[in-house]
């Protein structure tokens, strides 16, 4: 029994060391990669933050619409949710609320039909193209 116990101890340590080496390899692979290519949050921040250059300082809340608002549009819910979260994270502390209920609205569209949808739902608006599918929509009075 004592030999079996010694084998058990050696096996536990050896297995843990094997997993540790795997952890080390996973870290090493990432160490050699360019952080700017992997960090999707920072990339998204660079895309979204320029909207603030066009929004007056006194505007404290922004609206947010995306592909998930377009009727019949096919989209990946997780991607859409992540992009909304990244947008809120980038623009903090300004609350970013889903929907068209604010004067200044961020649009995040990759589908072509979004202009028709905006025309249908907003009486009058101006739109600034920021790039990478990001738009700043300003509701105007007619």
């Amino acid at each position: 029994m004592q030999k079996l116990r010694v084998i058990a101890m050696i096996s536990l340590v050896a297995f843990s060391m094997f997993v540790t080496i795997n952890n080390g390899i996973a870290a090493r692979v990432n160490w050699h990669q360019d952080p700017s290519l992997q960090d999707s949050v920072s990339k998204w921040e660079k895309r979204v933050k320029p909207v603030l250059e066009h929004v007056p300082d006194n505007i404290k809340v922004l609206g947010y619409v995306a592909d998930w608002d377009l009727p019949g549009s096919k989209y990946d819910l997780i991607d859409q949710d992540n992009e909304y979260t990244f947008t809120q994270y980038a623009l903090a502390p300004r609350p970013v609320q889903p929907g068209l209920g604010h004067e200044w609205i961020i649009g995040n569209f990759t589908k072509p039909g979004f202009r028709d949808w905006l025309d249908k739902n907003l009486a009058s608006y101006e739109m600034i193209k920021i790039g990478f599918g990001i738009y700043l929509i300003h509701r105007t009075s007619q």
Binding site: N23, G24, A26, A27, R28, N30, W31, Q33, P35, Q38, D39, V41, S42, Y89
Partner: peptide, 11 residues
């Protein structure tokens, strides 16, 4: 491991 991921996933 933790330092590497702090670098590639800073957020």
């Amino acid at each position: 491991y933790t330092i590497t991921f702090a670098r590639v996933s800073p957020h």
